[in-house]
């Protein structure tokens, strides 16, 4: 169950966390898009592993939902989404 939660909620979280990295780095994300996707896959797998650690399913779900929410909000403060090409 925890692995399932990690699989479903880990994907958007991994992509958003790597997106935040893209927003921080001084290099245009378009120039390392392939690396971004590879990094996201590794992080997604790592999040599935981490999702197994909390004591209950509920804790895993709460942590993942909260982390997704925080990452999404922080992402809105960057100029990443829909920024002019």
């Amino acid at each position: 169950m925890r692995a399932l939660l990690g699989t479903v909620l880990g994907l958007p979280l991994a992509l958003m966390l790597c997106g935040l990295l893209a927003a921080i780095l001084p290099v245009d994300w378009r120039q390392w898009l392939v690396l971004y996707l590879l990094l996201s896959v590794v992080l997604w797998s790592a999040l599935i592993t981490l999702a197994a650690l909390p004591a209950s399913h509920w804790r895993t779900a709460v942590w993942l939902v909260a982390a997704n929410g925080v990452a999404w909000i922080v992402l809105q403060t960057t100029g990443l989404y829909g920024a002019a090409a």
Binding site: L11, L15, Y36, L37, W72, Y81, G82, A83
Partner: peptide
Amino acid sequence: LLALVAGTLVFGPQ
């Protein structure tokens, strides 16, 4: 799947 979610949440239509 990665492109779909990244396009929706992170980078948008670009």
